[in-house]
Amino acid sequence: MPDAAPVLELKGLRKSFGALKATDDVSLDVRPGEIHALIGPNGAGKSTLIHQVAGSLTPDGGEVRFNGADISGLTVAQRVRRGLGRTFQVSSVAPEFSALRNVMLSVQSTQGSSFRFFRPVMRDRSLVDAAMDKLALVDLAERANVVAAELSHGERRQLEMAMALALRPKLLLLDEPMAGMGPEGSKNLTGFLDELRNEVPILLVEHDMEAVFSLADRISVLVYGSVIASGSVDDIRANKDVREAYLGGED
């Protein structure tokens, strides 16, 4: 597994806001079949890094390579079309649309152009059926016709996951998927992601250490914008710098 060519590769990424180096020469990769977790204390620059991978921020230097190609110059939408799926730290859905129509939008995107003006989407089985499948996959089928704004926090997370999966991504970028899920929800999601890694590799940004340690194949630790350690779960647990910088020193 570790020998396979990486799906996502960050090479020497740099991003500063004034004097603040939010991303300081970050290099890491995600390989097929693995969950690579990115952890770090608040303000370490995780969000800034995610933005640069997703395309909503332009790095000052360095490269984002995806499936062997440099995608640094592509827009958010172009990157998604290449297969970079994501979920947001704060769930981002179309609030006035039903769960079903939200997922249908993803399916629509994978089927090509959205410049089709005349055929009603709700009568298009190819959209509805594929979207229902994905909703069933995340256990949200019964809530298909509920408006997204009226879904619970956890359900919106599930919906976002369904939307991301409906894009048939080659990589998933998950930004704190466990946040606010509660113990039961976190456990379910952990199980779900554990299975998912075989279909699609994941770059996981997460605060929930239990989830990270049980899921990650590799962990990179970000502190003050730079990666201070990267390795297996055991490596990271044993790493002195990490314990001091992040895990709060000796237990």
Partner: peptide, 27 residues
């Protein structure tokens, strides 16, 4: 017809949440 079409769906999401639309691969 526009409102109910694929284009209409994308257009309405462009109003509701443009970031979501982009994250779905539609500019």
């Amino acid at each position: 017809r526009l409102r109910d079409s694929r284009f209409g769906a994308a257009l309405q999401v462009a109003r509701q949440n443009p970031d979501r639309l982009a994250a779905t691969g539609i500019a």
